[in-house]
Design a protein around this nucleic acid. Sequence first.
DNA 1: TCCCGTTGATTAACATGTTAACTGAATCGG
DNA 2: CCGATTCAGTTAACATGTTAATCAACGGGA
Lengths: 154, 154
Amino acid sequence: MAERLEKDGFHLSRTGRTLPILLLRAREQVMERFRPMLAAHDVTEQQWRVMRVLMETEAMDASELAARASVLAPSLSRILKTLDQRGLITTRKDEKDGRRTLVALTPGGSDFIKSVAPKSAAIYAEIEELLGQDRIETLLDELEALIETLSKGR
Amino acid sequence: MAERLEKDGFHLSRTGRTLPILLLRAREQVMERFRPMLAAHDVTEQQWRVMRVLMETEAMDASELAARASVLAPSLSRILKTLDQRGLITTRKDEKDGRRTLVALTPGGSDFIKSVAPKSAAIYAEIEELLGQDRIETLLDELEALIETLSKGR
DNA sequence: TCCCGTTGATTAACATGTTAACTGAATCGG
DNA sequence: CCGATTCAGTTAACATGTTAATCAACGGGA
């Protein structure tokens, strides 16, 4: 049973020991290690994520891209505009369905990722060394289970 | 060992199976359950967090408040301005140290939290029921360990 | 074919995240 | 006591999060 605060007749979990806060702080600690690298290459975390997803699977429509990169549609619209202006991606209309926007990396975008990827991998390896790969895998499994359970549960 | 992508001579962990993404998605799934309640009371997630922290320990300076609520100082400045205008908190200068701003809930702010807290607790209870308290505690422990390790590790 | 509800995407409006610059207050060293 | 430095907080500027509104393209049914 989680520790509780009992005060003035109401109770709440201690703020510092709740899923929302600890998930936020954990993510913050992880991202802190990537931030200098991302800043050095003048890309935001979200822009990097979008390009990485595109690298994994050539072209795709904006909806799928948003879902895979965990970015909301309005944010993606702005991000794509920025990346397009920088020549890192291109967009075109889907000829089968005029509503969809197909997005793809340009050769320059692909080169960009390939040049930065080793640094990203190195940082992730540092984290793996600090935490231990087993513990990370366990944690990833539990996070996936949480996501699965909450996304379906009632 | 984490699964890897090998493509064009570079490799990265699969985007969908990394700490940054899964921590983000897990938090998103959790928050999704609180959002309707927060919106119904016209407070943002961060505003709610700030007030909850204030409820736990009467008054405190802005720096400590920011740290406990996991909000950056610039965001906190804006949040405090908003909450002050709504009459939910008050601020005053620390007489011992003129640089510090002391923040406290107003009686109205305290009442607000007490009135909303039961709904928040009910939602958290739902989540506990879906996931199981044991698994949540385990997850919270692992997240705390991750935070501890990464915040100190080199 | 035409109407209409749905869907993919963008835009708008406001709040927060993020970094840097800036202000005022406290502190340290000479 | 003073000047330089450090510290707490705010402001600025830009990017993203979040919800709602908007718009064009689809698609089904009368």
